[in-house]
Design a protein around this nucleic acid. Structure first.
Lengths: 350, 350
DNA sequence: ACTATTCAAGAAAACGTTTTCATAAAATAG
DNA sequence: CTATTTTATGAAAACGTTTTCTTGAATAGT
């Protein structure tokens, strides 16, 4: 089942078989046909190990993500895989479980496996070992993080996302706006928070530390923290959640406290995961183009790989920032003038 | 950076280096230390291509799924990847997009890439090319489907899932129970439907074809179909959805028609995806252990791979069926005695 | 008609390992 | 003290390709 068998059946040398199959130089039409036929008859498929050994190419890339069951990553993954497959690359999945150590181990292991390139969608700040990878000449692109100009990246405008979400809440009349913060180690949350602050500032509202709710530990803790916050400050009017899943958790907590959404609290998220449009009421949110991000990251990586194959060097890194877009759905609502108006409104609706 | 450099630095032959690194036969302690030190100093990592060429092992498996952004697959994927990584295997992700042709292309391509084994979580009935794969001696395990005893598989008891969901609706007093059917090409839906029918029968209820709602095309169409069904048969009391995402879509449609859940319609799903517990009200559903399914499939595949390495043959295939469990949450509710009672109830609550 | 050039195809080297074969020293047995 | 076994290592073959080096035939240029 090797190339030798094909050669024998076609009555040519192995070199000729290789040449026809790889279309590398001249081979007479008549011979080519014989070879192709033989290869087909023997159901020949070249040994990837041998090929790789010569070419030092695996046609395999690694997608490193923290947690595939976190809703934003399947979309990114889908985009990456699709583009890779179309271009003849295989995608290996590395689920690091948000564990930096595991990530490094994985990288070390994969480097030995001669991976052609890496896409990192992990979101921690520490990029030392990632830069190292690039310094070794291995193509790397970051998806969803771009704290560093020294590496190729596709990101979204997280600052704008935070800004737009907040701006909208302000423009529909809210002033007491809580920001739900995520893990501060991830710069995307910092950027979103910065956007929130800037919007407040631009509209002459004062930033108050007690209005930002930090997600400590996990999303369960967010539930109890929400209740505590609303007990302390009952007149909160609006919420900007730094991610959709956080918005879901808050909606849950609020509902359990007897609050109506958007009647009592106007909520806007950031992400636009698939579920945001399915829940009731559908979540208003700032959408980031996740699948597109994956696709672009994949294309960028392929471009680097090809360039490296040709020239032996990597291109200068660039970072592309994708735009975000506010989608108004059912969880946001104009502020009513005062309490008495509000009751009127409620009665009217029933 | 090859083994030769290590050998030179350690002052030994390449054979000795290989032997120390693979711990295959005798090598003097003193020599071993020298080699290890040299390898470490040169940051040596063996070339996977060369290794594979000799051993015919890639330490790589392929996970074939229809759609990673379909909520049940990230969980399975997570389970597979975790076990694989722990055992030194790499997982390549194959997202076929429910397209059988693409799947076959992918398989052909991967077979050439010398993949050690396959896990299929795709759910179509046609297994001809999968059986072929096994006949070629390639380890294969199916996750989530088990229509065939000739291949290793991990499945869930889909019949029981349909049965338990229906049984519960009956036991809390409902009689007019709609079943929402999925793609009939997937045997898991057929099995769930069979469970529904059997439960009806066991409780002396008649199966009515007009009570099963077929998801034609996509989940969007399900929305309009739901409305049509309830216009035609307004007194439906309960719904058994053959998957949680379908339940979500129905809840949406029902809500838009002004129906209260579970007040007017009692709904139970099957799957227990992460979101089911997050939405409001949280979905009652029959849970299948998705992550566990992935883990077990991975373990089974590894067992086959190891066995094949040792004996050159595959073990007799076995299929394991995991149990499912009804989780009662907020979308199900006991039937009230009659219409007048019902109005009373509603008033009381307000 | 004789040399360049292009076309066509085989022989053999190379890729970086592992593994077999060979050999020698050391340990053990009789 | 020799004969065998065990321990330890090097040389070389093998894995299945691609690619360089040759060589030969055909075509073209004067």
């Amino acid at each position: 089942m090797g190339i030798r068998e094909v050669a024998k059946l076609a009555g040519v040398s192995v070199s000729t078989v290789s040449r026809t199959l790889n279309e590398t130089t001249y081979v007479k039409d008549e011979t080519r046909l014989r070879v192709l036929d033989a290869a087909h008859r023997l159901n020949y498929s070249p040994n990837a190990f041998a090929k790789g050994l010569k070419s030092n190419k695996s046609n395999t890339i690694a997608l490193v993500i923290p947690d595939i069951s976190n809703m934003i990553f399947p979309k990114i993954t889908q985009g990456v895989e699709k583009v890779m497959r179309k271009n003849g690359y295989i995608t290996v999945l590395c689920n690091t479980g948000e564990d930096c150590g595991a990530e490094q181990d994985y990288i070390k292991f994969l480097t030995g496996q001669r991976i052609d390139g890496f896409i990192f969608a992990t979101l921690t700040k520490n990029t030392a070992y990632i830069n190292e990878l690039r310094d070794q000449g291995i193509p790397v692109v970051l998806a969803g993080r771009y704290n560093d100009e020294s590496i190729d990246a596709i990101g979204v405008d997280n600052f704008k996302a935070g800004y737009e979400a907040t701006k909208y809440q302000i423009e529909i009349g809210h002033q007491k706006i809580v920001f739900v913060m995520g893990n501060p180690k991830l710069c995307l949350y910092e950027q979103r928070l910065a956007g929130y602050k800037k919007a407040l500032e631009d509209y002459g509202l004062k930033f108050r530390e007690e209005y930002v709710l930090y997600e400590l530990y996990d999303s369960i803790s967010l539930y109890s923290q929400t209740r505590k916050l609303f007990e302390r400050i009952p007149d909160i009017e609006a919420i900007v959640a730094s991610s959709d899943p956080k918005a879901f958790m808050l909606m849950r907590a609020l509902r359990d406290m007897g609050k109506d959404i958007p009647g009592d609290v106007s909520i806007v998220g950031i992400d636009d995961v698939e579920f945001s449009s399915i829940i009731d009421p559908p979540l208003s949110t700032v959408a980031q183009p996740l699948t597109e991000m994956g696709e672009l990251a994949a294309k960028k990586l392929i471009a680097q790989i090809k360039h490296k194959e040709k020239t032996g060097k990597l291109m200068e890194p660039t970072v592309d920032i994708l735009d975000v877009k506010l989608i108004v759905r059912g969880t946001t609502r104009k502020r009513r003038q005062n309490e008495s108006d509000r009751h009127k409104f409620v009665e009217l609706e029933q």
